[in-house]
Amino acid sequence: MQTVKMVVTGPFNAGKTEFIRSVSEIEVVATERRITDHTSRIKKETTVAMDFGRITVDSDLVLYLFGTPGQKRFDFMWEILSEGMLGFVVLVDSVRPETFREARRILDVFHNYAHTPYVVAANKQDVQDAWSPEDLRIALKVRPDIKMLPCVATDKESVKNVLLELLYRIMETAPE
């Protein structure tokens, strides 16, 4: 049995858990805990180690989706999670500009861990005050050759689109 993995990363509350939950065939193994610090005003629970979703392709191939913890103090986990990944998705909270700098930092860190293909997904595009993907590209200084995709993490089709775009990018560099 061959297993491959892709990583979903992004700042705190960007929607990583929902993203994986939307497409995983198993109940996402989320290691969420109640938040006790100041970020509890934003959401009540957060991922402290990783989220873990699975998509079975056939009896010989399984895709695992790993979601990284969003809070800074758990970033020691990132390097471990990035090992052996096919590619990664950087999920950005399009309605919280205060997280853009962190999103850019995460993007750089992951790109430095592994020069694998990646896409940037502008999540929460269904919210009225969401920054558009075009504006986010400029704000985050995302290179023109990197896909910046609109996304709604709770919408399965939207998540599928992001994963497919990432796979198309991976395909370009994969050996025959």
């Binding site: 061959q2 491959v4 090992e83 052996g84 861990y113 694998t116 395909m171 994969a174 025959e176």
Partner: peptide, 11 residues
């Protein structure tokens, strides 16, 4: 580190 060598057929 580089990406793992996964064949196109797998992708």
């Amino acid at each position: 580190s580089g990406p793992p060598a996964v064949k196109r057929s797998v992708i």
